[in-house]
């Protein structure tokens, strides 16, 4: 697996960082502009031909979205996790639907859940899970689901929320626990 990363570097692709998580799972960071070339190269020239998983993470502190592409080598079942960070405001990434047909589903979901744009992807913009959604995309970190529920979905009065920490602390009689 390491050799494939070396060849990546030799082909003028910039590998920002490498991290070995498990024996068969290596994570690399690449530049967002190079996503499509790197993935095309990996699919055509290396055994990492299978797009197993594809998702986004909202790093709101850095004002960035991280896109994670998990590629699998179907012979050895080694996993190569390719991470690229894109700007949170623009929220636009390259679409992979030409490389892998099932990427359409992931992009369809991310388009709704994160408000990401994938120019050219056939189903982005159609409703996926939500219907008649008028708020901010719900998986963004700044979407407050509790506030949303309090504002728009009526609840049965009388339901109590117990703070676990207070509750267990009181049960144990240890006031120390309340302030860690």
């Amino acid at each position: 697996m390491k050799t494939h990363i070396e060849t990546l570097k030799r082909h003028q692709f910039e590998v920002l960082w490498t991290h070995q998580q498990r024996a068969n799972l290596i994570q690399i960071g690449i530049k967002a502009e190079q996503t499509l070339p790197v993935l095309t190269y990996l699919k055509t020239h290396t055994p990492f031909v299978q797009l197993t998983h594809y998702s986004a993470v909202d790093w709101i502190e850095d004002n960035e979205f991280q896109l994670t592409y998990t590629l699998t080598n179907p012979q050895t079942y080694e996993i190569l996790m390719v991470c690229a960070r894109i700007d949170r405001e623009a929220a636009t990434a390259d679409s992979l639907h030409k490389l892998w047909p099932q990427a359409v589903t992931y992009e369809h979901e991310m388009g709704e859940m994160f408000g990401l744009k994938f120019p050219g992807s056939p189903r982005v913009g159609e409703p996926f899970n939500l219907e008649g959604w008028r708020d901010m995309p719900p998986m963004r970190r700044d979407f407050d689901t509790v506030k949303f529920v309090r504002d728009s979905i009526p609840e049965r009065p009388g339901r109590q929320a117990i703070n676990t920490r207070d509750y267990i602390g009181a049960e144990a009689g240890e006031k120390r626990l309340l302030h860690d």
Binding site: L25, Q27, T52, H53, S55, T70, M81, C83
Partner: peptide, 18 residues
Amino acid sequence: TGQTYLRAEASRGEMGYY
């Protein structure tokens, strides 16, 4: 801080958690 992808064989096929 960290990230991982883990999989297991469900009765339907590969189940993965990221």
